[in-house]
Amino acid sequence: MKKLKYLLLASILLLAFLVAGCGSSTKDQKAEKKVEYPTKPITYVIPFDAGGQSDIEARRQQPLLEKYLGQPVTITYKPGGGGAVGWAELVKQKPDGYYMAGFNIPHIILQPLERKDAGYKTEEINPVAIFQKTIIGLAVPKNSPYNTLEDFIKAAKAKPGSITVGGSGTLTGPHLFTLLLEKQAGIKLQYIPFTGAAPATQALLGGHSQAMAGNSDDLVKYPDKIKVLGIASADRFKALPDVPTMKEQGYDIQVSVDRGVAVPPGTDPVIVKKLEEAFMKIANDENIKAQMLKDGFEPVAMNAEQSKKYIEERTKVFTELYKQVAAEKKQ
């Protein structure tokens, strides 16, 4: 008797799975023919660790995306290689609109330039929208002798290579910022890459690095511990209205880390359009915009077309800069 019950249970479970498995695959084929989209849950891949900025942003969007798209949106993580592993997987996925991934600029531009085999090419990242900017700024501890960018540059000129600037990673937004500042001000700094924004901030607060090229969300977090000398945005940053831009101070430096979402290359434009609409609605949501600003991000709303153009434009700028850096390294 007991045996029978056991057998029954097992076979029911097995059956349930086979049905569930078949169900999803048939729906899949339908979607490709008639573009009834979306008809099943969508996977939203974060190519970074859980709890990071990209994750927080996606978690913020998740409930609204589910509301606008009418399907569950599952967030999963494929971290590694500064995002490269996740993007390499993205471009190999079936372009059916059920797999999308967050992407970051300048990462998707610099990684394929720098690495022999990053696993993807910049043009394979098929953007749906860009919704957030993290602006890079230069910060020093509160007790630092430098009160303005001018002080800082003067000191760097007096003793080339003696001022340490911490930042997250090599050839990332903060590193590019430092390189541009060195070039335009004609100074030499000692950039120290850390394994993320948090350790870089920690090193600045602990006085282990003299300055930090930091993300705006970290810069707004410590008003009583750090001084922000300049910020690399076009206009003054709303969350830090008293901080002058780099441009105001005579340096044409605009560096930000831009976050967006992309689908595999070759995705049906109708599908892209649907996703784009949902993301744009969220990006223009006043409530979401206010939250982002409070967290130290700049809300933006670029649609697929604009995003594509923006990536192309940035690619040109960064490729140029990368070539110069590489040439200097060889000397």
């Binding site: 971290p79 590694g80 290689g81 500064g82 490269a84 592993v85 390499a88 720098e114 690495r115 022999k116 085999d117 990053a118 696993g119 990673g169 090599t170 050839l171 890459p193």
Partner: peptide, 16 residues
Amino acid sequence: IGGDMRFTFGFYQLQA
């Protein structure tokens, strides 16, 4: 530091 791809033997997944 330096951003090299080390000992990945052609597997892009090993970047991580």
